[in-house]
Amino acid sequence: MQIHTRIVLGLVCMLVAVWLVAPTLVVIPMSFNENKSLAFPPVGFSWQWYENFLTNPEWSSSFFNSLKVASLVAVVATVLGTLAAFGLDRMRNVTTSGFLRMLLITPMVVPGVVLAIGIYAVYLDTRLVGTLTGFVLAHTILAIPFVLIAVSASLEVFDKRLETAAASCGAGRLTAFRTVTLPLILPGILSGLLFAFVTSFDEIIVALFISNPYLKTLPVQIFTSITRDADPTVAAVGTILFLATSFIIAGGLLLGNRQRKG
């Protein structure tokens, strides 16, 4: 490649990279603003918005609600999604399995608002608005596609002859699954779990409709806070989430490296 093409390409990439990262990073300085307004660049320095997040029950309760919902969703969606991925993988009829797979992935492509008003309508009738069950059910169906895709991807590269080998060594089907299949596709399942958690923790459109004053998730609280007043606590929450995710990912990276070496 010619040198000037390379320079132009590099510059374009740098711009795109800045564009991708900037909105995430500006949140950090904004969270230390002294005045009660969201502004960049911020004025002065204070911890008060972090304090507010920790002490204001509106913020802390919505945070714990999100944590609760997302953890439940992660578990339920991972179990259901992994089962479905297995079923589809072992299905003899390729047309059927392809069709079912497509069906299970539809929640990803249905426009959020359309699904949200539908779920809202049904929840109003069944009194599920503002309930933990309601949230978990709705978020689980939104998270299953991610689990399905992650687990299917690892099943695709899994050599099924290993299961046959285990069976020929006298292992029952469950033992073969537990000792051979599961450890090999575990990375796929774990990534599905992570995606399911994040999907639920971040979901806002359906949550906006099915929240009520008694049960609100964090994104809903953030949204109402942004539209109601420019409270810098939002920036503090954003920073905390960003740091938490960074630590988790860094931990995973270290763990992955160690596993690869060992």
């Binding site: 479905a84 079923g87 072992r90 059927t96 359309v114 049904v122 169906i141």
Partner: peptide
């Protein structure tokens, strides 16, 4: 494969039921 095929559809049933209840029925309502 034949041996396992009996169970295969089964495993997808829970997810499909949930899909029917939380996506299919609401969209139909709309």
């Amino acid at each position: 494969r034949l041996h396992l095929a009996g169970n295969a559809l089964w495993l997808t049933v829970p997810a499909l039921l949930l899909l029917l209840g939380v996506v299919g029925y609401p969209l139909l309502t709309i």
